[in-house]
Computed example of a mutant assay.
Amino acid sequence: MSRAQCPRCSRPSERCLCALIPNLPSRTRVLILQHPSEVKHALNTARLAALGLSNAELLIGEVFESLAALLQQPSHHACLLFPGEQAQPLVQFAEQRNELPLLLVVPDGTWRKARKLLYLNPLLAALPRVALPEGLQSRYRLRKAPVPGAISTIEAIVAALNTVEAPACFDELLKPFEVLIDGQIEAMGEHTYQRNHGKQDASS
C-alpha cells in the first residue's frame, strides 16, 4: 500500500515541505522545462523552485507545443540557462538588456536528457545561452556531480536570480531543498550515507 502524498509538493504526507516553501516575487520570469523522467524522482528540485517563485512556471514533457507563444513575449528577453562554449555570462547578458526583465528558460534533467530537450525543440536551441559564474559549490550531498561545478536545478535558479536581481536574495528558496536532503540522509541511515557519500563530502 502506497503512502499518502501531499498533492502540492508531492512528498509523503508526514514529510510535507509546504510549510517551508516561500512565495517569492521576482522581476525575472522563470520557465522550467522538465523532462518526464524527473517527475517521480525523490529529489525533484524543479518542482520546489516552481512552487516557491510567484513568477515561475513548470512544464513537463519532451516537445513543448506552447513554447513559441511563451518565448515571443515582447515584455521579456528570453535566454537559455545552459553552459557551454556558446554561453555568455548571465550577468553580462542581463546588463545589456536591463530595460526589460529576463525570461530565464531552465531545462531540468540529466545532461543527456537536457540536450535531448534542445534537440527536440529547435526554438530552445536558437535562444541565446547564458551560464552561471564558475566555482559554485552544490549542497546536493546525495548525487555526485557529473562535471565540476554542476549544481541542482533549484540551486541554479537561486544563483541566477541572486546574480541578476541583486541586492535581492532568493536563498530562502533553498530551505525546503536542504530539509529534503537531510530527510533522505536520515532515511538511508548515517552509516550508509557515510559509506556512499562521506568521501565525497570530505573532498568538497
Rank of each mutant, 00 (worst) to 15 (best):
Ala150Arg: 09
Ser2His: 11
Lys175Ser: 10
Ala49Ile: 01
Glu172Pro: 07
Cys18Met: 08
Met1His: 13
Leu127Lys: 07
Pro133Gln: 03
Ser152Val: 02
Ser152Lys: 01
His191Met: 12
Gln184Ser: 13
Pro25Phe: 07
Leu59Asp: 06
Tyr140Pro: 13
Val30Ser: 02
Arg115Thr: 13
Gln96Ile: 01
Lys113Phe: 03
Gln184Trp: 02
Arg129Ala: 15
Lys199Ile: 02
Ala46Thr: 00
Leu51Gln: 00
Glu155Trp: 10
Glu134Lys: 13
Asn98Gly: 06
Leu20His: 08
Gly189Trp: 12
Pro148Tyr: 03
Leu102Tyr: 06
Gly84Ala: 09
Arg8Pro: 04
Thr45Cys: 06
Ala131Leu: 02
Ser203Cys: 12
Leu117Ile: 07
Pro22Arg: 08
Arg29Thr: 00
Leu80Glu: 07
Ala56Arg: 11
Ala150His: 12
Ala56Ile: 03
Pro128Lys: 01
Ser152His: 01
Gln5Gly: 10
Ala202Tyr: 10
Gly183Cys: 05
Thr28Gly: 04
Arg112Ala: 15
Ala69Tyr: 01
Ser37Phe: 02
Glu190Val: 09
Ile60Glu: 12
Val106Asp: 11
Ile151Gln: 09
Val158Ala: 03
Pro148Trp: 02
Ser13Cys: 08
Leu33Phe: 01
Arg29Asn: 04
Leu58Val: 05
Leu71Phe: 00
Pro25Ser: 11
Val63Pro: 03
Ala145Lys: 14
Pro101Asp: 00
Cys18Ile: 09
